[in-house]
Design a protein around this nucleic acid. Structure first.
Lengths: 252, 252
DNA sequence: CGGCGGCTTGAAGGACGTCAAGATTAGTGG
DNA sequence: CCACTAATCTTGACGTCCTTCAAGCCGCCG
């Protein structure tokens, strides 16, 4: 599945979730688990499927939604990688997170009823749009949909708090790499080899570091043979060592 | 309502939400808005009220729930102040937040199905316990309950991300003081004069600072006549100045 | 009154940021 | 396919904000 070209660089297909058919959802979708299990009646399932709009492609730099826009829908990433970020009143950007295929964005917009952040495509991106009004109606009818929504929301609280702690640059970087690894693995992609689609500056911003520090930490990890880095291609050589450093930030 | 004793210290009643009667909820409760508006039928309202257990008092230091415990209920603080904090595998504590009367805790436990943090009483605390299973059942029947839950969850994501950003000690402290001010005001307490129930070390930890830094920043703010501090009693003298410093962290 | 925990204040050190220069890559048009 | 430009990334030197360490202070309670 992965090949290496003559320069020694990895060639990997751009991660994309399958489209799903009329009845089933994209296999990697966060809503899959709410519907795929037996027991959900077909009509309800079809209802959920009907309210989904497939949108894309977005080119790198294009915005899926904008900070301040009225909230109307949440989105599941179907292909590509999305970055969410806020710009404060002094114009400083803060990267909230990076979102892989199968992950859901926009949940933080429910309360303020406006998107509190931008969602920007980092490469070619496809998304599924779920009208939130329709989703809540369905949630009242199908317990599993309601339960899935509650869990997704709750999980997002946990994600946000993980990075709120006080940790060294090494700890945060190790945790970041392992987190991406786990999330790629969860969606069926390689866990030890993936592409850092985002520029160093975005990684740095997200981890509250300078991009220079990101460079230095990555170099340190390379020197210790914990990872291999070639531009934006990354290979994890010693996840155990990364774990000993980064475990403080990771879910147990 | 506020008096000053002969030592010059503020005397203020310990903030506590009223108990509510058979039909109505505590006036400050986060669930109040889901039910108080006309249009919700009395039976449903009574159902919600029935599933609430009033618990307390907890003395300072007592735990409402513990990290790792199986998730079963969310709690609304009815009186006193609660601190939530995680202890990582190296024994380091991280203070996630402080929770005033009317605020809800435990929402971050839905996904992992275990409480990911401790909830500790900082003074004498009373809470309302909502069985989450019963609440979700009710949420499927009463749209406003479902909506309130979604909003509470979504708001918690926002709260968690606010502190994740990269800011100076002054910015974080200013934002912290204003945030408490706003939250006390929302619940009907004084906005410019309140008690910092938590020790400096907890404030410091929550803001990712050393407690020494907290001392120094508070002193700086005092010298500039922005606040008045007497032990744990705090008075805000110039909220405008605090706002110019702290606005980067605050919701617009 | 005396001990103890929390708070304050000062001095020194460290982790990371900032600045600046160069190297590598990607993008673009010929 | 190649040349040229711009953006991104790396690396080093230096500065700074905050932490750490240490000592003294204050309020509280036996």
């Amino acid at each position: 599945m992965n090949r290496i070209d003559r320069e020694g660089r990895f060639i990997e297909p751009n991660p994309i979730a399958d489209d799903g058919d009329d009845i089933h959802f994209c296999s990697t979708c966060a809503f899959g688990s709410a519907c795929l299990p037996a027991g959900v009646d077909k009509t309800a399932l079809r209802e959920l499927h009907v309210l989904v709009e497939h949108i894309g492609p977005y080119r790198a730099g294009a915005q899926i939604f904008r900070q301040g826009e009225r909230f109307g829908a949440i989105y599941a990433v179907r292909g590509g990688v999305v970055k969410t970020c806020v710009t404060d009143n002094e114009g400083r950007e803060q990267v909230l997170g990076f979102h892989l295929p199968g992950e859901v964005i926009g949940l933080n917009a429910i309360h303020p009823e406006r998107y509190p952040c931008d969602a920007v495509a980092l490469d070619t991106v496809y998304v599924c749009r779920f009208s939130f009004a329709a989703l809540t109606t369905l949630a009242a009818k199908i317990p599993d949909v309601q339960r899935t929504l509650f869990r997704l929301l709750s999980a997002d609280i946990g994600k946000a708090t993980a990075l709120a702690g006080d940790h060294t640059a090494d700890e945060r970087m190790a945790a970041f790499l392992l987190d991406l690894s786990r999330r790629y693995a969860e969606r069926g992609f390689s866990s030890h080899r993936y592409r850092l689609v985002m520029p160093r500056g975005d990684i740095a911003n997200h981890l509250r570091l300078a991009s220079e520090t990101v460079s230095r930490v990555l170099r340190r990890f390379c020197d210790r043979q914990w990872i291999r880095v070639d531009g934006r291609e990354l290979e994890i050589l010693d996840s155990a060592q990364l774990r000993t450093i980064g475990q403080a930030l990771l879910p147990e």
